[in-house]
Write a protein that binds this DNA or RNA. Sequence first.
DNA 1: TCATATACTTAGATGTTCTATGCATAGGGG
DNA 2: CCCCTATGCATAGAACATCTAAGTATATGA
Lengths: 123, 123
Amino acid sequence: MVDRLQRATGKMPKNVPELLKGTLDLLILKTLESEPLHGYAIARSIEAATEQALQIEEGSLYPALYRMTNRGLLRFVWGLSAGNRRIKSYRLTAKGRKRLELETANWGHFAQAVARVLGEHPA
Amino acid sequence: MVDRLQRATGKMPKNVPELLKGTLDLLILKTLESEPLHGYAIARSIEAATEQALQIEEGSLYPALYRMTNRGLLRFVWGLSAGNRRIKSYRLTAKGRKRLELETANWGHFAQAVARVLGEHPA
DNA sequence: TCATATACTTAGATGTTCTATGCATAGGGG
DNA sequence: CCCCTATGCATAGAACATCTAAGTATATGA
């Protein structure tokens, strides 16, 4: 699916699998908005926030963290967890913060569009 | 992204790219709920319903219609459009109708979960 | 000591979507 | 009468995120 979020936002590249792809990224960005966390903690945080409705697979999570780091959305430092283990503590970069805003807006538009098709009152 | 919709529904296979994949499928199923339509018309209908917010690419649409037909969710008959062209008129099968119900529920759960992470009041 | 939870890594497969083309025709404007 | 555009469908190939599955390592509690 795709480019479903068209240029409604004007700035959408031209291709928005960003929606699919974008959702995990969005959840990660949002989770890191208020405080730095390591991968494992991010997954648990999202699962807790959704009361286990969303399950974050490690095989999806870690690659996503690499991608986002490579794209300059995140930065990490090695550290120690409460349990005394080596962790990569991730935080948002300025770029990541802007991306969070953009993707949050995109999600809103997309969800609203789907809602319209589904016949829910258009808000 | 993925299996984001976990087994919240209990019946989710185990893998729910159904979400990404599922969204286009869901939109198509919903569009065909009330009346049979041909591919081109489905795309236009969705675009109209979302005021062009969602763009349905033909390269995504037709393969999706094949997939769904092969899976027994849709059935089609050749016909003629108002413009007098050859069209494949698609309609939902009983299985497609059930799938529509399921995916509509899944979407609701997923959207709500994302909303929770985004900090919108949990409803 | 062993099982489990924590924590991260990565290779390979799967699947949807996109880009780009191609074909074909109806109808309107010039 | 010709051409251009909108209508309709089809499909190959690429791109990409995600999943499955496996591996490494260690802290902690039973």
